[in-house]
Simulated assay, not measured.
Amino acid sequence: MTKIIIVNRHLFRGGYYAITLFGVVFARRELTAKEINHERIHAAQQRELLYLPFFVWYLVEWLFHLAKFRRWTTAYYHVRFEREAYEHESDLHYLESRHHYNFLRS
């Protein structure tokens, strides 16, 4: 479970507000409950893939979608990890009933 959130307004540019790395959330501002849940979903995904494979898979999939759509943000929203997180971020109890590797269904 994500328990550490480091806030620094100088971390990101553009529309991005946070990133989860190895269970630690780095954010450029205080996060809403919905945004924290989104990042907690990523933390669960990272844990079940033993971290490094998650980042490799994420990058490869993002590059594939970038080549396909030729748009940075379109590629981002098509990554299966993001699809699962966005689809369930409003359900603050989602992680209690989430099945392992549920990102494969998104």
Rank of each mutant, 00 (worst) to 15 (best):
Phe103Gly: 04
Arg29Asn: 03
Arg47Leu: 05
Arg98Pro: 03
Phe103Ser: 04
Phe64His: 12
Leu50Gly: 08
Ile41His: 11
Val24Gln: 00
His78Met: 09
Leu66Phe: 11
Phe12Ala: 02
Leu21Lys: 05
Ala67Asp: 05
Val7Arg: 13
Leu63His: 11
Ala67Met: 11
Arg9Gly: 08
Tyr76Gln: 07
His99Arg: 13
Ala33Cys: 06
Gln45Ile: 05
Tyr76Ala: 03
Tyr17Thr: 06
Ala33Pro: 10
Val56Met: 12
Ile6Glu: 00
Gly15Asn: 07
His65Cys: 02
Val25Leu: 00
Arg29Tyr: 01
Ala27Phe: 03
Phe55Ser: 13
Asn102His: 11
Asn102Gln: 10
Ile41Val: 07
Leu92His: 12
Trp57Pro: 11
Leu31Val: 11
Leu50Lys: 08
His88Glu: 07
Arg13Gln: 04
Ile4Trp: 04
Phe22Trp: 09
Ser90Lys: 07
Glu30Thr: 14
His65Thr: 07
His93Gly: 11
Ile5Val: 01
Ala67Leu: 10
Phe69Thr: 15
Trp62Thr: 14
Leu63Met: 12
Asn37Asp: 05
Leu104Ser: 09
Val7Lys: 14
Arg83Cys: 00
Asp91Tyr: 13
Ile6Thr: 02
Asp91Glu: 06
Ala43Thr: 04
Phe64Trp: 14
Ala43His: 15
Phe64Leu: 09
Tyr58Glu: 08
Phe12Met: 01
Glu48Trp: 05
Ala85Asp: 03
Glu48Asn: 12
Glu48His: 10
Glu89Arg: 05
Glu96Tyr: 15
Arg9Val: 11
Arg40Ser: 08
His65Tyr: 14
Ser90Trp: 07
Tyr77Asn: 11
Arg80Asn: 02
Asn37Pro: 06
Leu95Asn: 06
Ile5Arg: 00
Phe69Lys: 15
Phe54His: 13
Gly23Pro: 01
His93Glu: 05
Arg40Ile: 02
Leu11Cys: 02
Leu11His: 04
Tyr51His: 11
Leu104Cys: 09
Arg80Thr: 01
Ala18Asp: 01
Ile41Cys: 03
Leu49Glu: 08
Arg28Phe: 00
Leu49Trp: 14
Phe103Cys: 06
Glu35Lys: 02
Leu21Asn: 04
Arg29Lys: 13
Glu96Ser: 15
